[in-house]
Nucleic acid binder design. Structure first.
Lengths: 192, 192
DNA sequence: TCCATTATTAGACGGAGTCTAAGTTCGGTG
DNA sequence: CACCGAACTTAGACTCCGTCTAATAATGGA
């Protein structure tokens, strides 16, 4: 990794950690981009070089994290049923969020602007996974593939939404597995 | 309906129709809230009395529409399985969007700002449906209810996302029914 | 050491969204 | 009909987000 790339990564992390620290202390809307930039010792313009918006600094993933989930996708055998692969990838992705999810939840709970944002930590992951599904199911029925893709994310959303404030991250992961299994079986099969 | 209420509704519709007309002509980001207000013969401040944001004018539903979908929900028999009720309500809701969906799609396709917005026409409907599900399933397992709720929306998203530009609205509805049925059966049951 | 490329920066700008204080319209009451 | 309080509208000022430009600084290779 060249010196340039190292510096970029360092700057990215400096901005993000400064921002999260300030958000955590004072709340999302009480902190301006100007203040974040000052705390990270960069200019306001540089902030927007690294993050497309103020919201992005909350939801964007560390650039190196991308390598991990791409590895997850490539690790799935080609003959595995799509739903099983999606389940495994979803769990693998979520297991890595142990550190960031709690903070992100706290911010969302405090800040109206973030609470109503439909974005979440998986925005970039979602794009990559979409592409992976597209290439993997190339030639087969795109409707079924898209549906499974969306159902998998619905299962994750459900696990996240039903996460009580006092529950541990491991319990969240456990419920996530249950949601994925239940979605795979079909709601009509189990409930009622 | 009092004169006051009539005027409010008229103002709401005047603002929205002016906005949609301008957006359609010049594109979403090329039109400012100031211009919308001028076209609707109200002040900028009044615009924000009726719509929480510039985006809301694209996605908010006509106040009277709410009565319709609430009727849809109340029409479901109490002993019907939740998934069947959700399916019926979703279809009933979508059938009413024949007029607005095409325009909304066109705007989304043209405007980057709208394209990345995760909002859609069903935002308020979603809230009401969430409440309806909550009261209906009160006492029973909330996880299963939330999961079915989210899966139903995932099915709608899928039908919407896979809607080709040249396809009719009726074909969209047809595919929506298929997505709901398939989601109800579970992806694992059918595919692969 | 020099040079092309890339990153950073200040500063200005337009527009979104909030707020206040003043004006206007409605609906009920005497 | 005249009045009053409540609800609605409005101009205008303000903050901050996000974009852009043109100038400066740092990097890595020749």
């Amino acid at each position: 990794m060249s010196l340039r790339e190292q510096k970029k990564l360092a700057a990215w992390r400096a901005i993000r950690s400064a921002a999260l620290r300030l958000f955590d202390q004072r709340g999302y809307e009480a902190v301006s981009v100007e203040q974040i930039a000052a705390a990270a010792n960069v200019s306001r313009a540089t902030f927007f070089n690294y993050f497309a918006s103020k919201e992005a600094v909350v939801f964007d993933q560390d650039p190196q994290e991308r390598d991990h989930w791409r590895a997850l996708m490539n690790a799935r055998p080609a003959d595995e049923p799509l739903w099983d692969a999606l389940t495994a990838i979803m769990i693998g992705f979520n297991e890595r969020l142990a550190d960031r999810m709690p903070l992100q939840r706290r911010l969302k709970a405090q800040s109206p602007a973030l609470a109503q944002s439909t974005q979440d930590l998986g925005e970039q992951f979602r794009t990559d996974l979409r592409d992976w599904v597209a290439t993997r199911t190339d030639g087969t029925d795109p409707l079924t593939a898209t549906l499974q893709f969306n159902l998998a994310f619905a299962a994750v959303s459900t696990a996240y939404q039903t996460w009580p404030a006092d529950e541990s991250f491991d319990q969240y992961l456990q419920r996530l597995r249950r949601c994925l299994a239940q979605a795979g079986a079909g709601p009509a099969a189990k409930a009622n």
